[in-house]
Design a binder for these strands. Structure first.
Lengths: 162, 162
DNA sequence: AGTGAAACGGACCGAGCAGTCCGCTTACAG
DNA sequence: CTGTAAGCGGACTGCTCGGTCCGTTTCACT
């Protein structure tokens, strides 16, 4: 790959990450291209559709979350592991509008399955010790993330076991 | 106003309420017109822009919420009043995507100011008795509504005072 | 320096949408 | 019953946006 192509690819991915985070999934490809300092034809050469560009950005986010999830499982205290991961995930949602709006889109990504499994285990473990209330499924717990991005302490208080 | 015009106006408002609730603010005017069983020219004769149509629908929702808020203030127990209103509001958010997506749009409506005042008083009263945690402003409390529409009990647990 | 392939980007296309317009239809007063 | 103004709806316009194409530029290897 030519050096200029590589540089432009990086710029496009960076610009897309920022644009999707700030303006959500409805941001135009033109806006991404402008921020990257390239023509929008260049964006479409690397990512055949706007959806492919979004998928690439989401993919990076999921990769990062998977690392955090693995670290949470390594933590010996179940509640500490859960709340660490929960706060990190809430923070990610708070930083990116796209993550909120494209939650559904993430299900098709290859990273989704392993992340879902790790997260399920984080929740199961915390519920088994009684530190996390057990009247919610793992999926339900993570539907609280948007709210938790603004007020993590309130939500974590609500989630504590009896 | 002619009888057929009146009937069509009602149909359009009803269809718009349903469409905005189900599909959010991006639903097309054509879709609303189709559901109402009229041409879309008819919609635009009554509501000069799509935004005016949305405003009319949101207006109705705010009217309903204002009644509920007044009832909550009439309740003698502060926490009961608060949680009654909070549950009702969460329920409204759960039923309507438009309410979530157009929260900002509501600020310009005439009903907003009186509703905001009533809601502020509901929160202030509950915080004064210590039943509602007081490290959040009224506005912040109601940022939790989207999450509360799914899991009211979790959120209310998190909101209870010490 | 010269050359060929890779990369670029803006002109262009088509779809979908908000909003307009006008010839046709229909309710209702007299 | 009839005249007419209110009401109707679909064809049309203008604009935005995703995606394509191709003439021009740039890289990198010799």
């Amino acid at each position: 790959m030519r050096a200029d192509a590589r540089r432009n690819l990086d710029r496009v991915l960076g610009a897309a990450t920022e644009c999707f985070a700030e303006h959500g999934v409805d941001v135009t490809v033109d806006e991404v291209a402008r921020r990257a300092g390239v023509g929008h034809g260049t964006v479409f050469r690397r990512f055949s559709t706007k959806d492919a560009l979004l998928a690439a950005v989401l993919s990076n986010e999921l990769d990062r979350m998977l690392l955090v999830a693995r670290a949470a499982l390594a933590e010996e205290d179940a509640w500490t592991g859960f709340s660490d991961y929960f706060r990190a995930a809430a923070d990610a949602y708070g930083r990116s509008r796209a993550l909120l709006e494209a939650k559904e889109r993430c299900r098709d990504l290859p990273q989704y399955e392993p992340l879902a499994e790790a997260v399920y285990e984080i929740v199961r473990r915390a519920q088994a010790t009684g530190s996390l209330r057990n009247d919610l499924t793992a999926a339900e717990v993570f539907e609280l993330l948007p709210a938790a991005s603004r007020f993590p302490d309130v939500i974590l208080d609500g989630l504590r076991g009896t």
